[in-house]
């Protein structure tokens, strides 16, 4: 049960990624339209979806390209907007250790949504195939969304509010992760609390980095878990 070809697991991965499909098609199409409005050709949207594959950063990036700021500013902005992704690689270290040739791709594809689906305890038997399928399915939804948005422009059917699926995905995953046990639920509270506090102090544009610093510091101060949780 450790092969990358597994139909039943693919079906499960497809069902689990449906909320991501809805969110990525809408958000990706939005990005494609922004690129379109700046006068960039559709293939550039596809290129960015394939090789950057980061939602918020692509929106910011479209603007950076358009205004033509220096490469150093581009690098710094990317670091600040995407720094949270360090968390994701860190969490998946142990799980991804056993992966085979698909390992670099799994790390490459660690978006907020892929991370949310894969960092929770998995119930499928063939975990290796499941991780690979979830990663590649999400990536393909994103590429499809970005490309369609760029090709169709404002003709893309825009259903207002369908992108809420991504917020809902995070909210539900958070509730799902709660164990109603003081020690084990404290990290969730620290994550939300530190981020909220940082948002109130530093404002919308600069709150993630300070929040991450506080989160890591507080998590390291927590006492060890008793036995295995």
């Amino acid at each position: 049960m450790n092969t990358l070809k597994d139909k039943a697991t693919f079906k499960q991965a497809f069902i689990d990624t449906l909320p991501v499909m809805s969110g990525y098609l809408i958000m990706g199409a939005g990005f494609g339209m922004v690129m379109n409005s700046y006068g960039y050709p559709p293939y550039l949207s596809t290129l960015m979806a394939v090789c950057i594959y980061a939602g918020a950063m692509q929106y910011v990036g479209a603007n950076l390209l358009f205004t033509g700021v220096s490469l150093f500013s581009v690098a710094l902005t990317t670091f600040i907007v995407n720094a949270r992704h360090i968390f994701y690689g860190l969490t998946m270290l142990e799980q991804y250790k056993k992966a085979g040739k698909e390992k670099p791709y799994l790390y490459f594809g660690l978006t907020d949504e892929t991370y949310t689906l894969l960092s929770r305890p998995l119930s499928v038997k063939n975990k290796r195939a499941y991780r690979f399928y979830v990663t590649i399915l999400n990536h393909s939804y994103w590429i499809a969304g970005c490309t369609l948005g760029a090709l169709l422009g404002s003709a893309f059917p825009q259903v207002r509010g369908a992108d809420f699926a991504l917020t809902a995905l995070f909210v539900v995953a958070l509730v799902q992760s709660l164990e109603f046990h003081k020690r084990n639920d404290l990290p969730a509270l620290i994550g939300a609390g530190a981020t909220l506090l940082s948002l109130l102090i530093f404002g919308k544009d600069n709150f993630l980095l300070p929040a991450m610093g506080v989160i890591v510091a507080l998590l390291l101060l927590l006492p060890e878990k008793e036995a295995k949780a």
Partner: peptide
């Protein structure tokens, strides 16, 4: 981190 990241 998974739980903290979800909160974030």
């Amino acid at each position: 981190l998974p739980k903290a990241a979800l909160g974030m």
